[in-house]
Design a binder for these strands. Structure first.
Lengths: 212, 212
DNA sequence: GCAAAAATGGGTTGTCCAGTCCAGAAAGAG
DNA sequence: CTCTTTCTGGACTGGACAACCCATTTTTGC
């Protein structure tokens, strides 16, 4: 058995790849806005400007499409966040990260929650394959955060386990996004992230000054 | 027309009230295990040991049943947690709370997530009424946590805004439960709660000793 | 150019499920 | 005892939706 088999085994022409991409993007939007179950393939079809059997030409089932959407959303989040992630090796960078996340949620009027976390919650208990896909998306996200924290730690500026801290930051962020989505206030997100940054600040000492 | 009409306007006999309760409990379990949309009324009917039109005798629609389930789950969580909440006015009590939550998730093999948060996530974007019900459930939970924190603050043992801290604790908990559910590891929950408790500890000073 | 492979359009099907209806049994009021 | 209200059982319906099929058009490899 060929273990290198693609999820979509057929060859794609340039046009085909574009159509497939359009379907994934449309599905991602709809699943984000309405949830996986409320986003019907008919909706996806229409939103992608594609007709009838197209979805099944590119995906074996709604499940396959969902897995592609999870990948897509992970890529989108990591790409959008990457400039902020790059600066997570300083308290100033962490504050910029916090501010950007809060500001972004405010602009969205606290709607939607986390594109990955929402999928994860919906999928966790009845779709093991999708749950794993979300979990591995979170691993990538966690790694991106960890890079900065670890660098700060390696420079001797930060006490405590950097791996734990990175996971705690991501976890707190998820809680903040969920509570913000449900309460339609930015306050829970602000407050958890402030709490976490306050903790980080208390564990920072300037390596050059070796002060305090 | 009587504007004081109940959500369930008809009078209930003792037997009727029991049956209604059985339906809510069964629906709560199923919605928790499978999600609101996957829990069909046929499943609820069977699980409650009730037949055919019973569900519609006690609830106008699945939506009404969902609202009753949200209330039910909030009550259940607050009741189950109340002994722990009662001790949240000391660091020892906070640690006991943390340990109990972690241990509970471990026993569940990290399945299910938060009974309230999961509903909230599923419902937030396409069911405003249910979203509000979940939000008000969270308000009650937040208040329960706040009581202890505020007491500690009033005794002069804790620095910082106690309201903010209570909300941060609940928010971090929600993130921990979500990440734990998705990754099927207890670690995210342990680590956010430890981070939060570490922050609290750094803001505590013993009022009697006035030390440090 | 010309076969083969890929892409597209749209119709169809079978199932699942929320919500309805009605008839009969049990419980309560007087 | 009897009339009214509530409770229970089970059959039914109408719509929605995932998945399937095939015929036609476009693209690609040679």
């Amino acid at each position: 058995m060929d273990m290198t088999a693609e999820v979509t085994p057929r060859r794609l022409t340039r046009k085909g790849a574009q159509t497939r991409q359009r379907i994934v993007a449309a599905a991602a939007s709809l699943m984000y806005e309405r949830g996986v179950l409320e986003a019907t393939l008919e909706d996806v079809r229409a939103a992608a400007g594609v007709s009838g059997s197209q979805v099944y030409h590119y995906f074996d089932s709604k499940q396959e499409l969902l897995l592609a959407v999870i990948e897509h959303q992970t890529d989108a989040v990591l790409e959008q966040q990457s400039p902020l992630h790059a600066r997570l090796d300083s308290l100033a960078g962490l504050r910029a990260w916090r501010d950007a996340l809060v500001e972004y949620q405010r602009r969205l009027q606290c709607r939607g929650g986390c594109p990955i976390g929402s999928l994860g919650s919906e999928v966790a208990e009845n779709n093991p394959e999708a749950r794993l896909a979300v979990a591995s998306g979170f691993l990538r996200w966690e790694a991106a955060i960890r890079d900065g924290i670890t660098a700060m730690h390696a420079r001797g500026e930060l006490e405590g386990d950097p791996d734990d801290l990175a996971l705690a930051l991501l976890t707190a962020l998820q809680g903040g996004l969920l509570m913000t989505q449900i309460t339609r206030t930015v306050r829970p997100l602000e407050i958890v992230l402030d709490a976490m940054l306050s903790l980080v600040a208390s564990r920072i000492h300037d390596a050059r000054a070796t002060a305090e």
